[in-house]
Design a protein around this nucleic acid. Structure first.
Lengths: 346, 346
DNA sequence: TTGTACGCGTTATCAC
DNA sequence: GTGATAACGCGTACAA
């Protein structure tokens, strides 16, 4: 089964005439050895070409330093960048990540969680939306979710309410005659999802300032073509009904905002004066669009860092002699950043 | 240190009056037990709420079912989608993935490899460009690279030569008066990188068909702004020098192609008749651009699947009693797919 | 400062 | 078909 077996503490012990324990201590508590002996062992490690085996260490110590991640997909830049930033926290916290892509299959994701538990992960980060937080909370393992329903578990989210409020405020500051919010929400529109805050922020600002507004909640399908068709219809309708008026659009993500920009530019040869547009996420597409799009930027790096930090805190708490687990889920919030680009500042 | 300890084979053995060995066999070779006894054990597993521990299994058996991945970043859609597809092979092969993002730091990536080896990964997939394949080949562990220098290790690559050839052929078929290839290659232009095949495909087609052509190899920096500035200059120069002629542009990726489209559309209010454009990768941006961009599509799903398959074959070979390791690195090639969109088919 | 002995939870090798 | 017993490689009381 195995090829030439690896060098172990035993081999080093024999080679140096120390015991296994001393070798172990060299790694975990070097100060307890004399400098002289440390050097002897250090030399032996080189001579024998020792490679550490963390699997054995895990079994003996119980600490895997593994964190599990379940992410819906990597097609959307938002998730890809989030994963990127989560993985980057290795440099800060030292935890390794076992990653599964869920693709929205509830049963599949349960299997993934089973598999992760079998590998004795110390904590779990969930970005997918399929499994209710109630069920997650029963796993009896530290969990943090990011931007999803989070009633029964700890979470880190963007301040979506503020994002919606700011975006609407930006449109209002340019004296729009009517302001729209177009949002594709998981069906049915679910106030438990943090992203729903954008809707509330929009509504509150409009009502507080007595602005003429419309909320368009619509499920647009997942393909680029179907999104394009829906938005094309909406655009036609709005153009007809509010001809001659200045229209402000706040739309729920940059991909959709880009579709709107393309539709408008292809129709008019430029971005029309009577439209203003704000997207959400600050995806690359918002910068790379033919007309750079104003957008509410999520601070993905901060969201990721705070998520891992919150998780690690729980994991550390568990390792104490008298653990004091959280009695209530902690929900952290990260402020979004409004980016003004050409679709509002022409 | 540990909370309520987990249920183990020992507990099940006591509960059922079997031995640990029999319990183990229930999982690994159930046919060797009577049906009756299988049911007894199955019931005990439920009663005791047993959760398997793969860490212990690894230590005893030596098989981690881990594959390590080092990927340059997840900012580019190409890498994100590749990781997505690699992770998706879990359903086919059952291997779990430990993922590190390299960000181009050679020393950092060496550390990551050390860490991966400490976790006894069975194989390694490398997408980052920093560590030479010669050094990788000395790790004495199955390795597959994807779209990078691969002289001394197994690899899976797109048939870049054919991609370049096809793209140029498409431009030629529309009777362009002059054809350009704009390519940003890792400095200095390095024929060892598979992507260099695109240049050769372009040159060969042009020379075989006696076409007027220009090769523009330029390092454009990494920011969107710097790419835009470089391409703007190139465009101005080309427009001046070949005024009135039909110009075909083959550019090395879709992000850059999109910048060109935007520059042209903003200048002329539409995509001009005397320009034709072909990108590379079939990134989402090629479809989402204001004028959908013709492009050479990499079959990322196939690349990923073939890479894992090639790796698993090597890993399985190693586990045989008389392993017959590859004497020469195997290089697999995946054919690209030409997509005709509006930038060539107006 | 160093060593002994045992435990971590599973698989592998023999016996019976 | 089933069971003892010894690995697997490291951590850790406890003793010296």
């Amino acid at each position: 089964m195995k090829q030439k077996k690896n060098v172990t503490f035993n081999d080093i012990a024999k080679y140096t005439n120390f015991s296994k324990t001393t070798i172990s201590r060299y790694f975990n508590n070097p100060d307890s050895l004399t400098l002289e002996n440390q050097e002897i062992i250090a030399k032996a490690l080189v001579d024998l070409d020792y490679k550490e085996n963390k699997v054995a260490r895990i079994l003996a110590s119980g600490n895997t330093e593994f964190i599990g991640i379940i992410i819906p997909n990597l097609f959307l830049h938002y998730y890809a960048e989030m994963l990127n930033q989560i993985l980057a926290t290795y440099e800060s916290f030292g935890y390794k990540f076992l990653v599964f892509v869920g693709n929205g299959q509830e049963e599949t994701e349960r299997r993934y969680i089973e598999e992760l538990l079998a590998y004795k992960i110390e904590g779990l980060i969930i970005l997918s939306h399929t499994i209710p937080s109630k069920e997650l909370s029963e796993l009896r393992i530290p969990i943090v979710t990011i931007e999803r329903e989070d009633k029964y578990v700890c979470s880190v989210n963007t301040d979506n309410y503020m994002g919606g409020y700011q975006a609407t405020s930006l449109l209002a500051s340019h004296n729009c005659d009517v302001i729209f919010h177009i949002n594709y929400i998981n069906s049915p529109a679910n106030p438990d999802v943090p992203a729903y805050g954008r809707v509330q922020g929009f509504l509150d600002f409009c009502e507080e300032h007595h602005l003429k507004h419309e909320l368009i909640l619509k499920q647009m399908g997942n393909t680029y073509e179907s999104i394009k068709n829906y938005l094309s219809d909406i655009l036609e309708d709005i153009t007809k009904r509010y001809s001659g008026l200045k229209k402000g659009l706040f739309i729920s993500n940059d991909t959709q905002a880009n579709v709107l920009v393309n539709l408008l530019v292809r129709k008019y040869g430029k971005f029309p004066d009577d439209f203003l547009l704000v997207g959400f996420d600050n995806s690359p597409i918002s910068q790379e669009a033919v007309i750079p799009i104003s957008t509410v930027g999520q601070q993905i790096d901060k969201l990721a860092y705070e998520a891992v930090k919150l998780l690690v805190e729980q994991m550390n708490e568990r390792k104490k002699r008298r653990p004091a687990p959280l009695t209530e889920p902690v929900h952290k919030v990260v402020t979004p950043i409004l980016l003004r680009r050409e679709t509002t500042e022409m």
